[in-house]
Every structure is written in structure tokens, then in C-alpha cells.
């Protein structure tokens, strides 16, 4: 049912001498209908404008977000590229051949005979005294297995 139907005047139930003529109420109804129509039209226009504005704003926001996403993707890509380059730089600097060549340039010489010193604690990890080292004054002091 339309809004106009609601405000349409109902027909009189019977003759009424004191009542205005039938033409009077019928003349007042179009004025009310016009106002309602205007209100509805304005409402529809406002709703449409709001929807349009919302859609445009949403689209602009999405476009802005897309641009930001592209920029961030580019930054991530640049950072990854920088990381890969740094990785290569570090690996080049760690290269044993480069280190050896640089050391020789600095006047270093290869160690003629590197030796291991095998340290043994006077007590075992479980706290029990080591029977092979009974005379050690400081039980936590490491001693050399090589003969002194």
C-alpha cells in the first residue's frame, strides 16, 4: 500500500447538513499529498546522495588502501633485496680464502703446529670427586692432562 493511500479521505457515512460540502475535503487532500510526496522525494534523494557518497568514499578508501599496500609491498621487496645483498656481503667477508689472504697481507703466519689442551675438571658433573686426581687443592680448577 502506498503512502498516498493512507492519507486519502474516507467517504462520509451519510448526509450531514452542517458538514462542509464534499468538494471541500477533496480539495484539501492534494495539498497534503504533495507535501508527503515532497518529503518522500527529498528523503529518497538524500538517501541516494548518501549512498552515492558512501560508495565513492568507500571506493576512494579502497583505492587509497590499495596504493598503500602497493607501497608497502615495494618496501618489503626492497628490504628483502637489501637483506639478500647483505647476506652475500657477509658470506664474502666470511670466506676463509679472503680471511687467509688478508691475514697474510697483515703479516700473520700460519701456526706451525696447533695443539689441543684437554682440560679435565677435578670433580665430575655429578659432584663426585674424581678418583684419578685425589690431591688437587681446588676441586673446581681445571688441570691439564698433559704432563707439566
Amino acid at each position: 500500500m502506498s503512502a498516498l493511500a493512507v492519507v486519502r479521505p474516507r467517504p462520509a457515512a451519510g448526509p450531514d447538513v452542517g458538514a462542509p460540502s464534499a468538494r471541500g475535503p477533496r480539495a484539501a487532500a492534494p495539498a497534503a499529498t504533495g507535501r508527503v510526496r515532497l518529503a518522500v522525494a527529498v528523503s529518497v534523494l538524500a538517501l541516494g546522495a548518501g549512498a552515492l557518497f558512501g560508495a565513492v568514499a568507500l571506493n576512494a578508501s579502497a583505492a587509497q588502501a590499495a596504493v598503500t599496500a602497493r607501497r608497502l609491498e615495494g618496501e618489503v621487496r626492497a628490504a628483502e633485496r637489501h637483506h639478500a645483498d647483505l647476506l652475500v656481503d657477509v658470506a664474502e667477508l666470511e670466506d676463509p680464502a679472503r680471511i687467509r689472504a688478508r691475514a697474510l697481507e697483515l703479516g700473520m703466519i700460519p701456526a706451525p703446529a696447533a695443539r689441543h689442551l684437554v682440560l679435565r675438571r677435578a670433580i665430575a658433573a655429578d659432584g663426585a670427586p674424581d678418583p684419578v686426581l685425589p690431591g688437587v687443592a681446588d676441586p673446581l680448577k681445571p688441570v691439564l692432562t698433559q704432563e707439566r
Binding site: L104, I109, P110, R115, H116, L117, L144, E147
Partner: peptide, 26 residues
């Protein structure tokens, strides 16, 4: 990998190192 015991004592090593000519850079 730990040496398997055929090495010399520290004193022997120090003495031999002291007696050996100083190494030179290649």
C-alpha cells in the same frame, strides 16, 4: 677432534718452540 695421545708434553713443546727458528711469512 682430540689428539690421541701421541703428542709431547707442554714442557717439551715450549722447549722445542724456543729452540726452533722464528717462522717467517710465506
Amino acid at each position: 677432534i682430540v689428539p690421541d695421545g701421541s703428542g709431547r708434553s707442554l714442557d717439551e713443546l715450549v722447549r722445542s718452540a724456543a729452540a726452533a727458528p722464528a717462522p717467517t711469512a710465506p
